[in-house]
């Protein structure tokens, strides 16, 4: 248990938070990598998933992309990209993280769109709504919970994978674990792991909160409840 107390000592010492290799810098790097990857992945994956779901095609693709994402080890992709053409660096990390965030986003937005009650869509069409109007005012609000679930899966996945990126020499909180292991600083290993776990749980919690608040706000005010 002495490792645990020394880990807490390391975490609570002001010096370990400051400087170019301090916790604050690493946390900033971790958030930057995560934010950039999830942002790019959303820009690519959401139009695809929502579009496929709207027209009702490509279901096999939408499910299989998720299965493939699960079978391919994140670590292998990171290393392949690092010793491949991209070399070691932030670009490599962001490319790998984005690839892994795309799968849950496409799959969940597709399922969300497909699970919208056909009756609701038909009623909207019967009221004279155009395809775009049905998409914006009926399908998207109803699919929002599933889309947000996809976002949460992707974000938590990316936070975890960004940790593994430290193994290929990337920045972020994983550095403490990897460097600590290499230099036999167990307090840093455990302290870094605590930080990583806390960050993942925080991101998950924040997105759960968002998925409770947003669907209610997205519901048109004129809609009787």
């Amino acid at each position: 248990m002495s490792t645990l107390t020394s880990a807490f000592d390391w975490l609570t010492t002001g010096a370990s938070w400051r400087g170019g290799e301090g916790i604050a810098t690493r946390l900033g790097q971790h958030l930057m990598l995560t934010g950039a990857s999830v942002g790019i992945a959303c820009a690519v994956a959401l139009p695809v998933g929502i579009g496929l779901g709207h027209v009702g095609r490509g279901g096999t693709l939408a499910i299989n992309i998720s299965n493939a994402g699960r079978a391919v080890p994140t670590f292998a992709v990171l290393v392949l990209l690092a010793i491949g053409p991209l070399g070691i660096g932030d670009t490599t990390t962001v490319v790998a993280l984005t690839l892994f965030a795309i799968a849950p986003l496409v799959t969940n937005s597709y399922i969300g769109m497909r699970e919208v009650d056909p009756g609701a869509k038909e009623a909207a069409r019967g009221m004279g709504m155009s395809g775009v109007q049905v998409l914006r005012r009926v399908e998207l609000p109803l699919a929002l919970p599933m889309i947000l679930l996809g976002l949460r899966l992707a974000a938590v996945q990316v936070v975890a994978t960004a940790t593994i990126a430290a193994l290929i020499g990337g920045g972020g909180l994983g550095r403490f674990v990897v460097d600590g292991l290499a230099n036999n600083h167990r307090d840093q290993v455990v302290g870094g792991a605590i930080l990583v776990a806390a960050l993942a749980l925080l991101v998950e919690g924040a997105l759960i909160a968002l998925s409770r608040l947003l669907p209610a706000a997205a519901r048109p005010a004129s809609c009787p409840r």
Binding site: V177, V189, G192, A200
Partner: peptide
């Protein structure tokens, strides 16, 4: 279970080290 599942694997292994 969701808390355990959310903890990244690298952190999980590191936390078990002691």
């Amino acid at each position: 279970a969701s808390v355990l599942y959310t903890v990244p694997s690298l952190a999980f292994f590191a936390l078990l080290l002691p």
